[in-house]
């Protein structure tokens, strides 16, 4: 049983994570205090939801660098809707945010699967276009905390059953992750994504509707980023056109790839992506609670990621020794 666990792809990552948490706890015992655990938990939901969509795209051997801008545009539009129509139900707002994101993702999907544009080119273009539109729809004005409904902010403060840990946003992220896991395992679309990424030409020969399923991956990625836009408004209160989601794409891609999803498509697990997100969350929160001088933070961050990659790679090679011929 334990043996089997260690043969899993995620095992090395889990060990790295455990080692990292141990080191941080030795240096700062309060890292495991309830308040701080909440910090770690609250760091995750946005990243998890965006990373899961990004993972779907990467599985198909694509990439979506526009997720940060989709998060921004959908978050801004939804926040403006909530500001201008205070009677709007926030669950409807969540649907709206997801819908806007899915629509923006569908544009990406159309360009890529329909018109045959390379994924990075199409999404690099929409990265700029969606960010520009965020300024246009908002006239460059931010939506302030007092203009948003209180129960939206409460999503990031309170949890179900009167518990405050973990808050609703974390549950939302976990539900999305579970749904995504089921989707990847049992739906035709999910399995097709692996097939497309594994061997794009072969997949189409075996009757996989490559274009349609690729399109779906981008719609899903957009929908995830869209929902994350509303969660951003919940978590940070102010929605600013320049800062919302800016640079988020690199973070999401890092989480997916650290989580063991192959950047060349075809392989990857939800558990891995969750661990990748958790690793990034732990590193970021740890940098804030350890007394690391500001000037050292970026270097330490880069070094830890590089070390995680190397250790993960080395561990995997050892596990697969013999099974792999080079």
């Amino acid at each position: 049983m334990i043996n089997k666990l260690f043969q899993r792809r995620e095992a090395p990552l889990l060990i790295i994570l455990a080692a990292l948490v141990t080191i941080v706890c030795l240096l700062q015992p309060r890292f495991l205090s309830p308040g701080n655990l909440q910090s770690v938990l609250l760091w995750l939901p946005l990243l998890i939801i965006v990373a899961l969509g990004e993972m779907a795209v990467i599985l198909t051997r694509g990439i979506d660098v526009s997720v940060g801008s989709i998060l921004g545009l959908s978050g801004m539009m939804t926040a403006m809707a909530l500001r201008d129509y205070p009677e709007l139900n926030i669950y409807v707002a969540a649907l709206l945010a997801t819908g806007i994101g899915a629509f923006l993702g569908a544009i990406n999907g159309g360009l890529i699967a329909g018109a045959g544009t390379p994924p990075i080119v199409a999404t690099l273009a929409t990265l700029g276009i969606y960010r520009g539109l965020t300024f246009v729809v908002s006239s460059g004005k931010q939506v302030d905390d007092y203009q948003l409904p209180r129960n939206l902010a409460r999503w990031s403060i309170d949890g179900p059953f009167g518990l405050s840990i973990p808050p609703y946003v974390v549950w939302i992220a976990l539900i999305v992750a579970a749904a995504m896991h089921l989707f990847l395992t049992y739906s035709r679309t999910g399995r097709d994504w692996y097939a497309i990424g594994g061997e794009p030409d072969g997949a189409s020969d075996r009757g996989v509707p490559v274009r349609l399923q690729t399109f779906c991956a981008y719609v899903l990625s957009g929908a995830g980023a869209g929902l994350a836009g509303l969660l951003y408004a919940s978590r940070f209160g102010t929605v600013n056109p320049a800062s919302i989601g800016n640079g988020f794409e690199l973070l999401a891609i890092a989480a997916v790839v650290i989580g063991g999803t192959s950047i060349f498509g075809g392989s990857g697990t939800i558990a891995g992506v969750l661990l990748g997100c958790l690793l990034l969350g732990v590193i970021n929160v740890a940098l804030a609670v350890l007394n690391i001088a500001e000037t050292w933070q970026s270097a330490v961050y880069g070094a830890v990621i590089l070390m995680a990659l190397l250790t993960d790679d080395a561990a995997r090679r050892r596990l697969m020794k013999g099974a792999r011929h080079k």
């Binding site: 700062q28 309060r30 701080n36 929160v285 940098l287 804030a288 007394n291």
Partner: peptide
């Protein structure tokens, strides 16, 4: 900013 502020409360 949020992460650093939370870090202060923890530290």
């Amino acid at each position: 900013s949020v992460t650093e502020a939370e870090g202060l409360l923890t530290k």
